Amino acid sequence: MSNGKELEEYVRNTYQFLLNMKDEGLNVEKDKKLVGKSGAVHQIDVYYEFVFGNRIHHVAIECKDYSSAVDKGRVQEFALKLQDIGNISGEMVSANGYQSGAKKIAEHYDINLKTINDLPTMPHLLGMRLSSVALPDESYKAEPFWTIMELRNDKVTGSYFGHTQDGRKFIPLFFSKYHALMYFQESNLDTKSWGIRGLPRHALRAFILMLDLLKRQSVEPMIMFRPPGDTSNSGFAGFVTDRKLLAKEYYCGEVPEPVTDSV
């Protein structure tokens, strides 16, 4: 970093990325002005707020792009600023670490100290984004689909279960987790190799975008349906769909069209 403003922008962009892994819409601001209890106006290098447990939480980040380690005086100044503002958490990011006295002051005032090396790099951020958005875990609820995904060491790999019918390949989608489980059991799938996962809105969007690649492999999505309470051996009814209908009728939002080569 060549100056403090570049460090502030770097920190802001990193936190903006981290806090919006699932398109939460959180805004991370730079050079925020907050009025303290004393009436003084305090400048905050990077600021964001979020809602958790029905409360709004405020976070201020101080950026120090010094050629040497940050001393305790700088941390004390930040601590006093936070105390005057009130109801706010503090973090500090330093380009060249902290002196031992600074660390003691930070611990006393519950200020989280970080260095540039503590912030994830862009390749790491992109990997986290992929894992967060495209690869649903067991806690995800369907909006509205459930599907079956490949597992490795109890984590999804990004590959979807598919079946072949009349020479065509399909990825089954279910409105009910119960029906997904029925299909899972009827297909005699190994629980160590496959798992049922819900597709929340952001994961459904990633799935729709992935269909552009799968189309080249002649793979299509199929919505599986079974009447409520059906215990017969008639199996599931399957309805083939496509990315446009999924986006329009189930995602109910804009999904970028695939890029095609111009003729």
Rank of each mutant, 00 (worst) to 15 (best):
N3G: 06
K5P: 00
E6R: 12
L7M: 13
Y10G: 06
Y10E: 09
Y10W: 03
R12S: 11
T14K: 03
Q16K: 06
L18H: 10
L19C: 09
M21G: 15
K22V: 06
D23L: 04
G25T: 06
N27S: 04
V28F: 05
K32Q: 09
V35C: 02
V35D: 00
G36S: 05
G36W: 00
K37N: 14
G39V: 05
A40Y: 11
H42N: 05
H42W: 09
H42V: 08
D45A: 07
D45Y: 05
V46W: 02
Y48K: 08
Y48A: 05
E49W: 03
E49H: 10
V59R: 00
A60P: 02
I61Y: 02
C63D: 08
C63L: 03
S67E: 03
S67Q: 08
S68H: 09
A69S: 13
V70D: 01
K72W: 00
R74I: 01
R74N: 12
E77A: 14
A79E: 01
A79K: 01
I85H: 01
G86W: 00
G86D: 01
G86Y: 01
N87H: 13
I88N: 04
V93E: 00
G97S: 05
Y98K: 03
Q99T: 15
Q99L: 13
G101L: 04
A102G: 06
K104G: 01
A106V: 03
Y109N: 14
K114W: 05
K114G: 07
K114T: 09
T115F: 04
T115E: 09
T121M: 07
P123V: 08
H124A: 15
L125P: 01
L125M: 10
S131K: 15
S131L: 13
S131G: 12
L135D: 01
P136K: 04
D137S: 13
E138Q: 12
Y140A: 10
Y140L: 06
P144G: 03
I148N: 02
L151K: 10
R152A: 13
D154M: 02
V156K: 08
G158S: 08
Y160S: 04
F161Y: 15
Q165K: 13
Q165S: 11
D166S: 08
L173N: 07
F174S: 07
K177D: 09
Y178M: 10
H179Q: 15
A180W: 03
Q185N: 15
E186D: 15
D190C: 11
K192L: 10
K192N: 14
W194S: 07
I196V: 10
R197Y: 15
G198H: 07
L199A: 06
L199K: 05
H202R: 09
A203H: 10
R205E: 13
F207I: 04
D212Q: 10
R216N: 12
V219P: 05
M222A: 15
F225W: 10
R226A: 12
T231K: 05
S232P: 07
N233G: 15
S234T: 12
G235H: 06
F236H: 07
F236Q: 07
A237G: 15
G238Y: 02
F239N: 06
F239V: 11
V240R: 15
V240Q: 14
V240L: 12
R243I: 05
A247D: 06
E249C: 12
Y250L: 11
Y250N: 10
C252K: 13
P256T: 02
E257R: 11
P258Y: 07
D261G: 14
S262I: 11
S262V: 11
